[in-house]
């Protein structure tokens, strides 16, 4: 029961704090692509892979008092910070979640900008396409973000690094 909720709490626990809903969305997506057992469904949206299920799940966790959400005004928009609460810690105690290497990957991702994670998740979204086509996709559907060729190469290198964590 509520194992998928527990996995999201576990991810937040490993991260300590995640600043930004977009960052949280992309981290879970990347984890999913790395074969961590997250079950939230993703679709491609304007800003890359996005899961409505995850949004609602986090909202549920906040309503239950298991996750703490802090809303901060950033001028024209709001930003949200997420941490787990003591109750969240207690809730996790009821589950035996084994996700080896999750901590290493999460900490690695949490240190990156959400812009970069958006690129990484977009590259992963199109991972069935050859690299050149992926680049073309990024340049056309994400033209406003002005990603460079170097950034895309960096994203590929980054994915490789994450995969190595899992192999190690």
């Amino acid at each position: 029961m509520l194992e998928d909720h527990a996995k999201v709490i576990s991810l937040l626990k490993e991260a300590g704090e995640i600043i930004g809903r977009k960052k949280l969305q992309k981290i879970v997506y990347i984890c999913k692509k790395l074969q961590f057992p997250f079950n939230e469904r993703y679709q491609f949206h304007f800003y890359g892979p996005y899961s409505e299920e995850l949004t609602l799940r986090v909202e549920e966790l906040c309503n239950l008092g298991l996750v703490n959400e802090v809303k901060e005004s950033k001028g024209g928009y709001y930003q949200y910070r997420y941490t787990i609460t003591e109750e969240g810690e207690g809730f996790l105690g009821h589950y035996d979640l084994e996700m080896p290497y999750l901590n290493k990957c999460i900490c690695e991702m949490n240190g990156q900008s959400s812009r970069f994670l958006e690129l990484v998740s977009t590259v992963l979204y199109f991972d069935s396409l050859p690299k050149e086509e992926v680049k073309e996709k990024v340049f056309t559907i994400k033209r406003k973000q002005n990603y460079t060729e170097e950034e895309i190469e960096e994203a590929y290198g980054y994915i490789e690094r994450l995969n190595k964590h899992l192999e190690a």
Binding site: H5, Q25, F46, Y47, Y50, T55, R57
Partner: peptide
Amino acid sequence: SDLPYDFYRPGEEEER
């Protein structure tokens, strides 16, 4: 969250 429908959410910048 197990259901396939979504509410309107203004969200965060560049989230959706």
